[in-house]
Design a protein around this nucleic acid. Structure first.
Ligand code: ZN
Ligand code: ZN
Ligand code: ZN
Ligand code: ZN
Lengths: 145, 145
DNA sequence: GCTGTTATGTTATAACGTAACAAGATGGGA
DNA sequence: TCCCATCTTGTTACGTTATAACATAACAGC
């Protein structure tokens, strides 16, 4: 896919960050580059998500750049492990899960478009007391585990 | 667990609804019963979630009353199938998934507290064109599949 | 030129969530 | 009884996240 200027900027900001960024954190990061208003960020995020280049981590209300190459098919599952203390996030590869979802989806769904799995807990570093506490602001400081 | 008056009200509102309600929809539903401000609803929701009586559907930013009896253990997984068109939701029973999560959590997490799986797509009714479109407001009209 | 389409841009507002404080209730111990 | 600690409940105000609505620019094809 051909990215527009704004989409490039947003993707680049997410790639630089070491943890998920809220849309407004992206906005702040891009103010120096002329990005001024929420809709610009949200529109770019929407396209990037559609292209599979960015995911939204639902339980955080934040966005990450994808480091994988998904099939981009409708049945790809997006899975994240999240440390609830320091905010570290890891995108998991769980293709095998996707297959079982058709059966798991119970009686309701006729077709599946999108699946997400989010597992939260404490990372090894936080259990050892070696991580900084969750950074509330956009600062990119993440956890070294 | 012993529920307080407000918790009873909130739980009851969620049980009556045929689809997930946002916190503010709960608030609106309970205005006639003297509930006036967001923190009351959020505090009740927090307790109810802790007791496993209510879940938050992350991708909708909305809450549902649980119809199951979970183990309430920390490793219970909450799974939902969601129709993205009409808003119908079904809570799935996926205990077997929970077991595999320890392995799936990759290198990051040392311990798991909470897991959520959300599968969205189109329900049978929407595929057939038999469902009403998603109701934006609190109206309880859901999908008959 | 004109027209349709896509991308940008701005303002304002809706929707979701929480911090901080005030007021009442409860329950000892001096 | 009175004071004080503590817990719960309630309210105001605020912070954060997301979108509606409208306006403009840029470009392609005719
Ligand atoms: Zn990915
Ligand atoms: Zn951590
Ligand atoms: Zn449940
Ligand atoms: Zn439907």
């Amino acid at each position: 896919m051909e990215l527009t200027t704004q989409q490039e900027k947003v993707l680049s900001a997410l790639r630089k960050a070491k943890k998920p960024l809220s849309a407004y954190a992206v906005l702040d990061a891009l103010r120096t580059q002329g990005v001024r208003s929420p809709p610009i960020v949200y529109r770019a995020l929407e396209k990037l998500q559609g292209a599979g280049l960015v995911h939204r981590v639902e339980s955080l209300g934040a966005f990450v750049a994808c480091r994988h190459t998904h099939g981009k098919g409708p049945d790809g599952i997006h899975a994240f492990a999240i440390c609830s203390q320091c905010g570290a996030v890891e995108e998991l590869c769980a293709p095998s899960l996707a297959k079982s979802l058709g059966r798991k989806s119970g009686g309701l769904l006729a077709e599946i478009n999108h699946s997400m799995l989010e597992i939260s807990g404490l990372c090894h570093g936080c259990v050892r007391g070696a991580c900084a506490k969750k950074n509330t602001k956009k600062g990119s400081g993440a956890c070294s585990q």
